[in-house]
Amino acid sequence: MRPLLVLLAAAALLAGCGADDPDADRPGGTLTVYAAASLIDVFERVEAAYRERHPDVDVDIGYLSSAGAATAISQGAPIDVFASADERQMQVVADAGLAEDPQVFAENVLTLAVPEGNPAGVTGLADLAREDLAVALCAPDAPCGAAAERLLAAAGVTARPDTYEEDARATLQKVELGEVDAALVYVTDAAARQQTVDAIEVPEAAAAANRYPISVLAGARDPAAAQAFVDLVLSAEGRELLRDAGFRTP
């Protein structure tokens, strides 16, 4: 076990006690999913569809940064399914021997988000290099940050960000508050906030898409229920929900 914050370990320890509960072995028990924060809107609909089909399973989905989720899982958090926003964080879990068979279920591309009405007159990626603009990017360690780095490198733009936000949602929030003039966020997030945020399409983004893998985790308390969730996400119905939210599906 790699060392981490004591709090996390303690939480894992406490939850681990629950795994010994005989009820947990009963089919149709509980299903706990950790999903990247950018999946919140679409996975709420997936969850509803899942409940319809498996009313006997108690589903619980936690949304957090992919990196945070990966760390918690590696530390032994009793999670059954992990849906990451990029393959790097899934690899962290796989390296710990916990991800059984990751499969990519969606791709997300970045877009330029500007406050409603685009007060700074942003037109494209090149504006991110303007010194007079306040610019937010995701931190390089977050999947959206890694994607942004790839995109900017491919476009040959040296951005001058004012802040590296911890995750995609925090980045979007800065645009919504009007505190930055532009930010690189997921198309899906921008679409979910159409009322407060304008999106400017970035043609170069398609090449720098990030891929969302999902996997049942080793030690899932109810492997059948967990696999059923993964199958639903990968099914035609699941793909349609993802596409509705702005994701691309393989």
Binding site: L4, L5, G68, A139, D141, D162, T163, Y164, E166
Partner: peptide
């Protein structure tokens, strides 16, 4: 926000490092 040298204090650095390298 979080920008090295301007606004990235130690607690922020710790938090972000946690995501990459505990």
């Amino acid at each position: 926000g979080n920008f090295p040298g301007t606004t990235q204090t130690m607690p922020l650095a710790v938090y972000l490092a946690l995501q990459r390298d505990p």
